[in-house]
């Protein structure tokens, strides 16, 4: 990482303390200086810790029914009781615990999907940009084709028939979201390939793979890192849409999608079943998106050389 850093630096830049850092480190430092990033980061961390710990600590089982407590309204609307802060659903299950367990699946699927898109997309993009010629044409046309089918159609088509397990969902979402990564990786590869030092490596006798892994691949990471954070949020929305359509992780396991789909049936007597989990999800996603956008802004500043 450190040798690409020195290469990426603008010539003539004073060797201040900040410029000793790699671009990635400078980007993180710049992002951290923004309140929106800090807010997003802390909120997301708290929610994530809550999702990991609370269902374990509290004695409430997310799937345990309690008909006596059914349709308990959330904290500020009903009685002033902390027993069920977000209320309960039509079977008396606690919505907070259900949301937190749903968040576990949502984050797991979101992150795993992005990792997969990243690997597939960057791999194909690197190959396409590096090999050029027919390989490039074929991969780019496949990318275009993939972009022209809404991924949700693909996902519904596949998950509609195969059993929607967690790995299946990750596979389907991951396979349908890679084109953007391929495009970015390709354009970075093209610009990196034409640089002098790569030509020098060639003269020194470096193989294609050595050049790709040691020099080109590290340059792909910074411009795409913020996309990955934003994409985790996007994939979490897709996961919830699939759950809502009944094609996500199946009940009784709670997910945001299936809680809301359930709650929709009781909208008139218990509006909070459908709205509260959505609000919870909205809050989580906003914190992620604030982080991602702050990273994007920081990256632009680093590229412009203002930091």
């Amino acid at each position: 990482m450190s040798d690409t850093a020195t290469k990426n630096q603008a010539p003539g830049q004073a060797a201040s303390a900040a410029s000793m850092l790699t671009p990635t480190q400078r980007m993180l430092r710049e992002a951290w200086s923004k309140p929106s990033f800090k807010f997003g980061f802390f909120t997301f961390t708290v929610l994530l810790l809550g999702a990991l710990l609370y269902p374990e600590i509290s004695s409430i089982d997310p799937t345990k029914m309690n008909i006596k407590a059914r349709h308990t309204p959330p904290l500020l609307i009903g009685d002033w009781s902390w027993a069920h802060p977000l209320g309960t659903d039509h079977l008396g299950r606690d919505l907070l615990v259900r949301c937190l367990v749903g968040l576990r699946y949502s984050v797991l699927i979101g992150c795993a999907t992005v990792v997969m898109m990243f690997i597939v997309g960057c791999g194909l993009g690197l190959l396409s940009g590096f090999k050029g010629k027919y390989t490039d044409t074929i991969i780019m046309r496949i990318t275009d084709a993939q972009l022209s089918i809404p991924m949700i159609i693909l996902a519904i088509a596949i998950l509609g028939v195969s059993r929607p397990t967690v790995p299946a969902i990750i596979l389907v979402l991951g396979l349908s979201g890679w084109p953007l990564y391929a495009r970015v990786a390709r354009s970075v590869t093209l610009s990196e390939k034409s640089k002098e030092y790569i030509k020098g490596q060639r003269v020194l006798g470096a193989s294609d793979w050595r050049i790709i892994f040691l020099f080109v691949a590290p340059a792909v990471l910074p411009p795409i890192a913020f996309v990955a954070v934003l994409d985790v949020a996007r994939m979490m929305i897709f996961e919830s849409i699939l759950g809502f359509l009944g094609l996500g992780v199946q009940p009784p396991t709670p997910t945001f999608g299936n809680i809301i789909a359930d709650g929709r049936k009781y909208l008139l007597n218990a509006w909070w079943i459908a709205t509260m989990p959505g609000l919870f999800l909205l809050f989580t996603l906003t914190s992620l998106n604030l982080m991602g956008s702050a990273l994007e802004g920081a990256r632009n500043n680093v590229l412009r050389g203002t930091v």
Binding site: S36, L230, S240, L282, L285
Partner: peptide, 13 residues
């Protein structure tokens, strides 16, 4: 940041 975080089906409901 908020608009992009809104799940569309939830907003519809």
């Amino acid at each position: 940041s908020i608009f992009v975080s809104v799940p569309n089906f939830w907003l519809g409901i």
